[in-house]
Design a binder for these strands. Structure first.
Length: 925
RNA sequence: GCCGGAGUGGCGGAAUGGCAGACGCGCUGGACUCAAAAUCCAGUAUCCGCGAGGGUGUGUGGGUUCGAGUCCCACCUCCGGCACCA
């Protein structure tokens, strides 16, 4: 075979690896383990895009590298295959989601195998396989069986929940209700997104600006009984244990922000209703130190006390406001944030600190779902309250002394603030707090409130409990039974399905069309849903689990995928866990990773896993954009400079908001002038130059099948790694693929005689000893590639190998001893080519477990090195010296240099800085 | 608005505080060829200069240092996330 022909060699090696099970792995306690995991994909109908192989290639390279370094490597792949698209397709065509899913999985598997990844396919998992979701159901039952012991800060079996005697006294049903109220999985009335036009419930991500993503129909919020998971109980541990993992700080930050822990106090205000009765209105504040500055209160429009506190005179206004607020979507409520709205209820409340009466308002800037749904407003020290007070002319009372600098900067005075002062400072006009600093005043006020029985320390979270049920077909059924009475009504008693009956399989449906009512499709499976046990009648839970469920724990199933006694065996778990490296897209930075961590902690508390955190190290691959695009703009046939155009990638508008035409221009019609690209034909016309996210509608999607067909899998792998740092966002370039392909071709020709008809090594490949310089280059390359792999710097590792090939190419002979270690270095990156060349060099079998080449530091020393000499920081001369020349010798050589003396002009230097082996800098007088 | 990340040739990008632009793409010239492709060789930040050579350069402005792409301060732009969470 004369020339490099990936289409011939790649499938052959892929078959070899699969049929020899080259990458099958079993726990081997004599070796160090390495668990390297990819975020498994949702097998969509569109197939793989080039973003998938980016992370997969990085992990594959490391997996192969670690094997060669003698690690026992677990590197599995599977499918996150429940989800909406297959169900939508079923609704439209009647094809069972099972069929669609199977087809898509087969296509994904084919594409992934075509890229030569070294997965252990014996461990493949599929979340829709009953043998898999049997254990998803098991974990749900475990959550249902667990309560969170706040004292011990851990989850414990519900059987260990202490029952208060007054509850016990009320009998079995009371005990049952008490337990149900404490379980980590519980039911609650929660609003869902109901779209009557589509006749279905939608996920949050399917709702955009209060309308359905498909069809743009209105969506209303409708309360429905839902399963919730008590993730908020684990909020503190989820924050604290971020300290245990080696993750990007940005991701940990995002998780902390998402959880949004804030410490403060709950305070009771006594609100006086129009009928004269008092009711406590509880507020949450992080600034109890400013209580003396509270000049009004605000309740969320939905707050339950609103009707009671509304006076007759205000009733109409309040009712109108509440009605208006209820129809606003969350989006509108926040988008309109610039202008604050609200209505006075007509009532007053007593400030517990000073007994003053303050008006009670309702306003939608207070959220019903956070804290207590009510606040004390301190306009002097809170921006939102300040804006509201301005809007409605409410009093502003300063109780924290601003710094003079702040007053100057904002042009404020104590009697007349122009903005809220939100920083800390000394309390003033605050009774017993006056004179204290903010931190101390907070503590003091909280203690005082507690003494008075009017408040207490409180921690709140932005994180809400996890809405865990979906009104969908294609998801895991809940293994729960609702008891029903003789009239067919639920009694409220819920029985878990016995473990021995798992998996609880999804029933087959003939018709996947939505029922038109906000009820789950499983309601149609009447036979399946009706169950009788011990003379009692039950109806199965009809909701299904969200897509997150299966992906929450899949990393555990890989450890022991065939186990039918446990989700994974103890010894496998103890050997392999935790995951050493987890690679995936940043879009899962919060939800998937938070949910997984939560489940893992529950499994940990209940003794199913032995590590507090599942993923020791996390790396996010960057996004791959489409090819660079140059866009010019035209209006009425005349070019318009991009400087005058607003362009979002789709529509272009000029300054007046009128639509303008956007025209794609070729690269060679464009040149760069200063900061911007302009038309070559007319330099006054600026061009928009950008790379966009790949999307079907844009038509800039790169299909990996096509790349492999043209250049081969090794080139695709190499290019994806060569583009730039793994974490960076970077644009695709077909020419770049061609570049690495040429590199691989050069490697091929280094070894194979491409003029011969047969596949034989080039006559230049000899058994000679390599020259000293070649050995130095080889060892330098080994060192660089090894260091770069350890630091996941794939792009520079490839550069190093290219440099080495550039060194070897012009040589008259290519000693085997210089080639073989290099082939091993290349193997993780371009495994098919490396295997082929390894065999051509006379080695039978696979190189997958050959030891990684070691470098000898003694070989790295060059015979001579060049040391630059600077005068006043500018290079003026170069010295060629022995590598070990010491400082004084370098200094003497530098000062003796003719050019240096010229620049010094006979004057003695003021100072000489010598860095041996690096440079000499002479500071002239 | 807040929290992250990033700004380096025509492009992707490289540089433990010590020779800016490695490597690749593109481009230019040359070799090979009847010719082309492929391949190989040489050049390629920018300005001045025929040249030797010299000046300027890592988003902007300041600073620290013998020396700054790298460290510090202020600002600008782009990307990602969050967004009335009291």
């Amino acid at each position: 075979m004369p020339s490099y022909h990936p289409a011939a060699i790649e499938p052959r090696w892929q078959n070899y690896w699969v049929s020899n099970k080259t990458f099958r792995v079993e726990a081997d306690p004599s070796k160090p383990k390495y668990y390297i995991l990819d975020m498994f994909p949702y097998p969509s109908g569109a197939g793989l895009h080039v973003g998938h192989p980016e992370g997969y290639t990085a992990t594959d390279i490391l997996a192969r590298y670690k094997r060669m370094r003698g690690h026992c490597v677990l590197h599995p792949m599977g499918w996150d295959a429940f989800g909406l698209p297959a169900e939508q397709y079923a609704i439209e065509t009647g094809t069972h989601p099972r069929e669609t899913t199977e087809k898509n999985i087969n296509n994904f598997r084919r594409q992934i195998q075509m890229l030569g990844f070294s997965y252990d396919w014996d461990r493949e998992v599929d979340t829709t396989d009953p043998n898999y979701y049997r254990w998803t159901q098991f974990i749900f039952l475990l959550l249902h069986d667990t309560w969170f012991d706040a004292g011990a800060r851990k989850g414990r079996p519900i059987s260990e929940l202490p029952i208060p005697s007054e509850v016990a006294a009320r009998g079995e049903d009371a005990i049952r209700a008490y337990r149900d109220g404490k379980r980590l999985a519980y039911q609650a009335e929660v609003p869902v997104n109901w779209c009557s036009a589509l006749g279905t419930v939608l996920a949050n991500e399917e709702v955009i600006d209060g309308r359905s993503e498909r069809g743009n129909h209105p969506v209303v919020r409708l309360p429905l009984k839902q399963w919730m998971l008590r993730i908020t109980d684990y909020a503190d541990r989820l924050i604290e244990d971020l300290m245990l993992v080696d993750w990007p700080e940005s991701i940990r930050d995002m998780q902390r922000n998402w959880i949004g822990r804030s410490e403060g106090a709950e305070v009771d205000f006594a609100a006086i209703a129009p009928d004269g009765t008092e009711s406590a209105v509880r507020v949450f504040t992080t600034r109890p130190d400013t209580l003396f500055g509270a000049t009004y209160m605000v309740l969320a429009p939905e707050h339950p006390l609103v009707p009671k506190l509304t006076t007759k005179a205000q009733a109409a206004a309040v009712e109108a406001y509440r009605d208006q607020a209820s129809r606003k979507s969350d989006f509108e409520r926040t988008e309109m944030a610039k202008v604050k709205t609200g209505v006075w209820t007509g009532s007053m409340a007593r400030n517990p600190a000073n007994g003053e009466l303050v008006p009670v308002w309702i306003a939608d800037y207070v959220l019903a779902g956070y804290g207590t749904g009510a606040i004390m407003a301190v306009p002097a020290h809170d921006e939102r309250d300040f804006a509201f007070a301005r809007q409605f002319d409410l009093p502003v009372k300063v109780v924290v002394e601003p710094s003079q600098a702040w007053l100057d900067k904002t042009g404020s005075s104590l009697g007349n603030l122009t903005a809220a002062y939100t920083e800390s400072g000394q309390a003033i006009a605050s009774g017993f707090l006056s004179g204290l600093g903010t931190a101390e005043a907070k503590a003091r006020m909280t203690a005082w409130l507690a003494e008075q029985g009017r408040g207490s320390l409180k921690v709140n979270y932005k994180l809400r409990d996890w809405l865990f049920s979906r009104q969908r077909y294609w998801g895991e059924p809940f293994p729960l039974l609702h008891e029903i009475d003789d009239d067919g009504k639920p009694t409220g008693r819920i029985e878990p399905v016995d473990d021995s009956e798992l998996p609880l399989r999804l029933p087959d449906l003939a018709d996947f069309k939505p029922s038109g009512r906000p009820e789950p499709p499983l309601g149609k499976a009447t036979e399946w849903a009706a169950v009788e046990r011990g003379g009692r009648r039950y109806r199965r839970e009809l909701n299904t689990m969200p897509q997150w469920a299966g992906s929450c724990w899949y990393y555990l199933r890989y450890l022991d995928p065939k186990n039918d006694k446990a989700l994974c065996g103890k010894s496998a778990e103890q050997y392999w866990m935790p995951v050493d490296l987890y690679v995936g897209g940043a879009e899962h930075a919060v939800l998937h990773l938070l949910y997984s961590r939560f489940w893992h902690k529950v499994l940990f508390d209940r003794g199913h896993v032995s590590t507090p955190e599942p993923f020791s190290r996390l790396v996010n691959q960057g996004m791959i954009l489409g090819e660079m695009e140059y866009t010019a703009f035209r209006k009425d046939g005349a070019w318009l400079s991009a400087a005058k155009v607003e362009y979002d990638g789709k529509a272009a508008k000029d300054a007046s908001g009128a639509e303008v035409e956007s025209v794609k221009v070729e690269e060679d019609a464009v040149e760069k002038k200063g900061e911007h690209f302009v038309l070559k034909a007319d330099n006054a016309i600026r061009i928009d130059a950008r790379a966009f996210k790949m999307s079907k509608s844009r038509g800039n999607v790169i299909n990996p099948d096509e790349v492999v067909r043209q250049y081969g899998a090794d080139s695709l792998r190499l290019y994806e790694m060569f583009m730039g740092p793994l974490e960076a966002t970077k644009p695709w370039s077909m020419r770049g693929v061609e570049g690495v392909y040429r590199f691989l071709t050069r490697v091929w020709r280094l070894v194979i005689d491409d003029r011969s008809e047969e596949n034989r090594t080039s006559p230049q490949v000899t058994g000679d000893a390599p020259s000293r310089e070649t050995m130095r280059q080889l060892h330098r390359t080994i060192q660089r590639v090894t260091d770069d792999l350890d630091g996941m710097r794939f792009n520079t590792a490839i550069s190093a190998m290219m440099e080495y090939v550039n060194h070897l190419t012009p040589l008259a002979t290519r000693p085997k001893a210089a080639l073989e270690p290099f082939i091993l270095l290349l193997a993780p990156f371009a495994p098919h080519l490396a295997e082929e060349l390894w065999r051509a060099l006379g080695h039978p079998g696979t190189l997958a477990y050959e030891p990684w080449p070691a470098f000898d530091p003694a070989m790295l020393v060059a015979e001579s090195i060049e040391v630059p000499v600077q005068v006043n920081g500018k290079i003026k001369a170069r010295l060629t010296v022995a590598p070990n020349t010491d400082g004084p010798a370098l200094e003497a050589l530098a000062l003796a240099d003719e050019k240096v003396r010229e620049h010094l002009g006979g004057k003695p230097p003021r100072k000489v800085v010598v860095v041996p082996g690096k440079l000499v800098n002479i500071v002239a007088g």
